[in-house]
Design a protein around this nucleic acid. Structure first.
Lengths: 290, 290
DNA sequence: AGAAATATCTGACCTGAGTCAGAGATTATG
DNA sequence: CATAATCTCTGACTCAGGTCAGATATTTCT
């Protein structure tokens, strides 16, 4: 059996198992879509967000909410700031219902895991992690977006949060690319995403001077590291900058990020003296595209 | 996040992915259940078998077949031996349609795999194998069935086929337990199965003389080895024989099956001189239950 | 041979999960 | 301030995927 068939076979197997394992249980005394909505509402969410995250038709969502309201599980109130928007939240009964569904799902998975030894459980979880990581990697594509878009800002926020946690003296968000900055300086914001709106990494190239561009803000979601995604992103940045005539690429990084420096070194960057006054750039690198 | 949540998380992820990866594609120009039926019919199958393997209502199946007949993809004819039963088979057009669906599915998985390096593909397949093996193991339960049942005979046939392949001079099926034999000699046929009708292992205990029973025909599906299932099956056989007063257990095996001898030794069996004249028992073991 | 069991088919009916076209309220924009 | 855009709701409709109760034909059992 070739690899494609092996993967399809696994998919078929897992599909069958999901009947028992998956969140399918959700529909036991309630239609599945209502249960799913119950989970998605969580601590309260506006309908607009629900519609996009669940991909529901507005009419359908409205009807589902009416039904949950009728069961006393959900309350829908107008949004305080915007009178067009309405916000759904769980009533105490709704929270109880959600907790019960959750407990039931935990129990069914738990009883399955109970059949395994602790070592086998560890192996199961580790193997699932591998599968997921590789599938995510396989479905990632890299594309350009505006540096002011919500997705770009979300990536930069995650990037900043991580640096803030890893740098001894923290990281100030004021060092981040400002919205719209690339349009004036020149450059591009690239995002690596599995699905159009779920980013797992980002990076920018930005014009420094004629023929010279800087690579900044390269970030990969911690869940997706170790799969060569950073290298893929870096080479996408290089080729796009190179395609626009910027053949000298510089970048700076911190000693607190040894894996970043290792990536740059192994990608053909050589260390140079500081080329700018960026606060966090303790190590500076340059690569000239051939 | 604890293990249960990790597993649930993987399930959620995989559910989402299956939309792209799975055999979901099947429904592109045809309802999903019709496509599934097209696959299940294969080289021809009687409706009775289709109904049970797909779990369909007879009325529903009938209607699906009518629709596929209308599209010229399927022919339904009476069964030659039994006039009540009808047999469905694919027309040339049906085979073409099936082949096209199959190609489409292969292609969508193939293009995903194409994003990975060969080493990553190998890791993906290996990790999926792990996940599947462990899940199968976790959902296996051991139960008694009649030694003349179709499932029992199927297990024995697989057992015989494997021995035939591994023994230098082959294995003769005439050495197998005969249907109904256990009812006269005393003993039980145990089957290890994930689902009621999908066995992954078997084994019997059979009365030799008062207080003494023999364990025979212990077999585990090759896909499920290395997970401790053989040990589980063996101990189930021991405890059931022991519960009926047979506290001395004997068994024989071949030198060509080193893993079997290792299992018996590590389960407390000690080697003894031959206790019978069974042709293939080059090594003989005994264990007295405490 | 007659009764009981088995297999399939037909028609009536149901439910979940949507889609679609507006209507009505509110907010943003030129 | 008028107009456009945004958000939600309602009613009408569709479709896949069934269930259920017989009717009918055949086979097996007694």
């Amino acid at each position: 059996m070739d690899q494609i068939e092996l993967v399809r076979d696994f998919n078929r197997y897992y599909t069958r198992r999901l009947g028992v394992l998956g969140d399918h249980y959700l529909g036991l005394d309630r239609p599945w879509s209502e249960s799913r909505l119950l989970f998605e509402i969580g601590e309260g969410a506006d309908l607009r967000a629900l519609r996009s995250s669940l991909g529901l038709d507005s009419g359908f969502l409205s009807r589902l909410l009416r039904s949950l309201e009728g069961q006393g599980l959900v309350e829908v109130r107008p949004h305080p700031g915007d009178g067009r928007v309405r916000v759904a939240s769980l009533t105490p009964a709704g929270m109880a219902a959600r907790a019960e569904l959750d407990a039931r799902a935990r129990e069914s998975v738990g009883s399955l895991l109970g059949q395994l030894t602790p070592a086998q459980r560890d192996r199961l979880v580790a193997a699932q992690e591998q599968v997921r990581g590789l599938l995510r990697l396989a479905s990632v594509s890299i594309s350009e977006i505006a540096d002011s878009s919500a997705l770009a800002r979300w990536c930069l926020a995650r990037y900043a949060a991580e640096l803030d946690a890893r740098f001894v003296s923290g990281y100030s968000s004021s060092a981040l690319l400002r919205p719209g900055e690339l349009a004036t300086t020149g450059g591009e914001f690239l995002v690596a995403a599995e699905e159009p709106s779920a980013a797992v990494g980002c990076g920018i190239w930005q014009v420094l001077s004629p023929g010279v561009a800087e690579i900044r803000h390269v970030w990969i979601d911690p869940d997706c590291r170790g799969f060569g995604l950073g290298r893929r992103l870096l080479s996408a940045l290089e080729s796009r900058a190179g395609a626009q005539g910027y053949r000298t690429l510089r970048l700076g990084t911190s000693r607190a990020l040894p894996e970043a420096a290792a990536l740059y070194r192994s990608s053909g960057y050589r260390e140079i003296p500081p080329y700018g006054d960026a606060e966090y750039n303790e190590l500076n690198f340059e690569k000239v595209l051939s």
